[in-house]
């Protein structure tokens, strides 16, 4: 649910990075944080365990600039990937405007990707959302590693409807901004549709 405030002339949108544990969601946000000018970013919050695994969420507010005289803010969230944190994931999905599904491209993580994607669909459905009717992009992360699933296979299992997709190496930043830009664009276009 985007939020338009005419008093402060601001518009806020919520984007959630979803995916299996350790696929690189937090790394995506960290890269965006590092590469964004101070005046455009807020504090990055990570509610993590001592072993730095996301416990509840990571949060990064980004101010992208103005559109038609309105300050445009994106609130980026990640979810904890581990299967047993499902309750937290549902909470974070509340009011989401756009989804980035981060897949771990390593062969042995294919099942985990599929399971997480199914879990995403179910959790959205519970709230009355249809993943394929909302702004949604996919990132195939960890492309730098040797044991990758072939891209055709990733596409076949994870992207049957051919939403925008990006190869990435979040650790070095490859594909990170392309992904963010694509989802931001879809979210803004959706707002435009809603305006009619």
């Amino acid at each position: 649910m985007s939020f338009i405030n005419y008093a402060s002339r601001e518009i806020n949108c919520k984007i959630v990075y979803y995916g299996p544990g350790l696929c690189g969601k937090t790394t995506n946000l960290q890269y965006v944080y590092q590469k964004t000018a101070n005046e455009s970013k807020g504090k990055m919050i990570s509610l993590a365990t001592e072993s730095e695994r996301t416990l509840f969420f990571d949060f990064l507010p980004l101010a992208l600039g103005e559109v038609r005289g309105f300050k445009t803010r994106f609130h980026l969230y990640t979810v904890p990937g581990q299967v047993f944190y499902d309750a937290s994931r549902k909470l974070i999905l509340k009011g989401v405007d756009g989804i980035v599904f981060v897949a771990d491209s390593q062969e042995e993580r294919m099942d985990a990707n599929i399971e997480s994607l199914e879990n995403l669909k179910e959790n959205l459905e519970e709230q009355g959302y249809d993943l394929y009717k909302m702004p949604f992009v996919i990132q195939y992360n960890k492309q730098d590693l040797p044991n990758l699933s072939p891209i055709e296979e990733l596409q076949r299992f994870l992207n049957p409807t051919k939403v925008p997709e990006f190869k990435a190496c979040a650790m070095s930043g490859v594909g990170v901004f392309e992904t963010l830009k694509a989802i931001a664009k879809l979210v803004l276009l959706e707002l435009k549709k809603g305006a009619r």
């Binding site: 518009i11 445009t72 276009l189 707002l191 809603g194 305006a195």
Partner: peptide, 22 residues
């Protein structure tokens, strides 16, 4: 309906507007 009433600032948004944000 939530976005009617006052002119929605996004009704006239263009691809260029969005690209400029980045």
């Amino acid at each position: 309906g939530s976005t009617q009433g006052m002119a929605n600032p996004f009704a006239e948004i263009t691809d260029d507007d969005i690209d400029n944000l980045f």
